Each structure stands twice: as C-alpha cells, then as structure tokens.
Amino acid sequence: MRQRHSFHVDQGGHSVTVNVRSGWITETELLVDGKECAFHRVHGHGSYPMTLSSQLADEPPRPLAVTLDRTGKAEHPLSCVLALAGAELPMPERTAR
C-alpha cells in the first residue's frame, strides 16, 4: 500500500513543497513556486535522512535544501526541515485531500 506525505511552507514570498509517495518504489519531489526542482526515486521505502537541494529565483539566487528524516512515530513517520539562509525551519505536513 502506497503512503503519501506532503510538506509545505511559504517563505519570503516563495512556496516550497515536498511530496513523498512511498511503497514498492519511493518517489520524492521538491517543488519551488510550483515547479519541480529536484526528484529522487528509489526501490523500497527510501533511505533517510535524505536531502534535496535547489534555489529560490531571487537576484542573486538563494540556495535551499530540504531534509527528510524518520520520526519513529506511527501517525507522522516523516519530518521535513527547510534550510535557507543559515536557518532551519520545520515544514508542517499537509493533511490529505
């Protein structure tokens, strides 16, 4: 059975979203302002922690990274943290729609 997780934060006028679809194959995508900027695909449930990197389309561009890790909790098995401009910001998980 596939599990889906979605994390989202608005930061400095930009939207950062991480979507995870896990099962036999785990796919993780990083969207910045609605555009896919990084993608990772692996057979199985994935290896954590996992970091995906991109940048914000500012002038000059600002690098960012998101790190996913296991929490050990059944109801929220993954956590996601955004690293931007030397700060780390936890990204809240969106509820399923």
Rank of each mutant, 00 (worst) to 15 (best):
Ala87Ile: 13
Met1Val: 04
Ala74Lys: 09
Thr71Phe: 05
Ala38Pro: 04
Phe7Arg: 01
Val16Pro: 12
Cys80Gly: 04
Gly72Phe: 01
Gly23Asp: 03
Thr71Asp: 08
Leu78Arg: 09
Ser54Phe: 01
Leu64Lys: 07
Val32Arg: 01
Ala57Leu: 06
Met91Val: 02
Val81Gly: 01
Gly23Asn: 03
Glu29Leu: 12
Glu29Gly: 13
Ser47Thr: 14
Gln3Val: 08
Ala85Thr: 15
Gly12Ser: 07
Pro90Cys: 10
Gln11Leu: 13
Gly44Phe: 10
His8Ile: 02
Thr17Asp: 10
Cys80Val: 01
Val18Tyr: 08
Phe7Pro: 01
Phe39Asn: 14
Gly72Lys: 00
Leu64Arg: 07
Arg21Met: 14
Gly34Ile: 02
Leu82His: 10
Glu75Trp: 12
Gln11Tyr: 14
Val9Phe: 01
Phe7Cys: 00
Ala85Asp: 15
Glu29Asp: 14
Arg62Gly: 10
Arg21Asp: 15
Glu59Asn: 10
His45Trp: 07
Leu64Ser: 06
Val42Ala: 03
Leu68Trp: 06
Gln11Thr: 14
Glu75Gly: 03
Thr67Val: 05
Ile25Leu: 07
Ser54Gly: 14
Leu64His: 07
Asp69Phe: 08
Lys35Glu: 14
Ile25Lys: 11
Glu93Asp: 11
Asp33Cys: 03
Cys80Phe: 06
Val9Gln: 02
Thr51Gly: 13
Ser47Asn: 13
His43Ala: 11
Arg4Met: 08
Gly72Ala: 00
Ser54Glu: 02
Arg97Ser: 06
Ser47Trp: 06
